[in-house]
């Protein structure tokens, strides 16, 4: 049974196609000014990879901030619900899912059946989401992909006081002027955001195993800082940015089976 899950995120739309519980294809597109078109594009890419047409999909479920824009989807699910679904299916031992996307960070606690017990979201503030590292990379005049590896080379921790992405930008500039190395500043950036994500996770009562998903999970610098802050290991699935899309696809599968 072929279904699709589509996650309309703030920065990217991710689409994933399942044939029963086998992942057939994935596709993503930058969230443009017209998110409807971006959603179409992402799904189009996934369909092309899978080699069939949209008509052959039994059900499509959308999630993400722009889920209403995916007009072709029959149902929607929240990001919290989608993440819970995806992680409990992939790694049944997971009790806490930390999802850090471009504009939101969330922590979700699930039980052994994948049911959501508790969740907390940090939204509408760039300091607690991926945009923060992106803005800081710009202030450091490096590419966003570079900030993570750079941070791992840091020799010492430098405190960062600003709690706002705009103010942190000027703090980064003054840290550069104060002759701190870019490596140490990069780590300060990751420690700062990890601190906020960690306290969000503690708020819901962190329980092992802990999975980290969302695009920011690809940032090795952030992962390192978060592990240090939480003092535990993090389970990171392959293609962590597709976690929501995968969860949505599982929901679609249930719907298609008449669930």
């Amino acid at each position: 049974m072929r279904v699709s899950g589509i996650d309309c995120g703030a920065k990217f739309v991710k689409a994933l196609i399942l044939d029963d519980d086998k992942i057939l294809a994935k596709g993503s597109a930058a969230s443009g000014f017209d998110q409807k078109a971006s959603a179409q594009e992402a799904l189009g890419k996934a369909l092309k990879e899978a080699g069939f047409s949209m008509e052959e999909l039994e059900h499509i479920t959308a999630t993400g901030t722009g889920k209403e824009e995916a007009a072709f989807a029959q149902t929607t699910v929240t990001e919290v619900g989608a993440n819970a679904k995806a992680m409990s299916a992939l790694h049944p031992s997971v009790r806490t899912v930390i999802d850090v996307g471009a504009e939101e960070g969330r922590a979700i606690r699930i039980d052994d059946k994948g049911k959501v017990v508790d969740f907390a979201i940090n939204e509408k503030c760039a300091a607690g989401a991926g945009t923060f590292t992106e803005t800081m990379a710009r202030a450091l005049e490096i590419k966003v992909e570079e900030i993570g590896p750079l941070s791992l080379k840091s020799q010492k921790a430098v405190p960062m006081n600003a709690q706002c992405a705009v103010f942190a930008e000027s703090e980064v500039v003054s840290l550069i002027h104060a002759k701190h190395s870019k490596e140490d500043i990069a780590r300060a950036v990751h420690d700062a955001i990890a601190d906020r994500i960690a306290s969000l996770s503690r708020k819901i009562g962190l329980e092992k195993d802990v999975a980290l998903v969302g695009g920011v999970a690809r940032n090795v610098g952030f992962v390192d800082s978060l592990k240090r802050d939480l003092q535990l290991d993090l389970l990171i699935p392959e293609d962590p940015e597709y976690s929501c899309a995968l969860g949505a696809a599982y929901v679609a599968l249930e719907k298609a089976k008449g669930g």
């Binding site: 508790d118 601190d195 906020r196 306290s199 969000l200 503690r202 708020k203 819901i204």
Partner: peptide, 9 residues
Amino acid sequence: YSCAPCKPM
């Protein structure tokens, strides 16, 4: 964030 541990959901 500082007060979060005293304020569980």
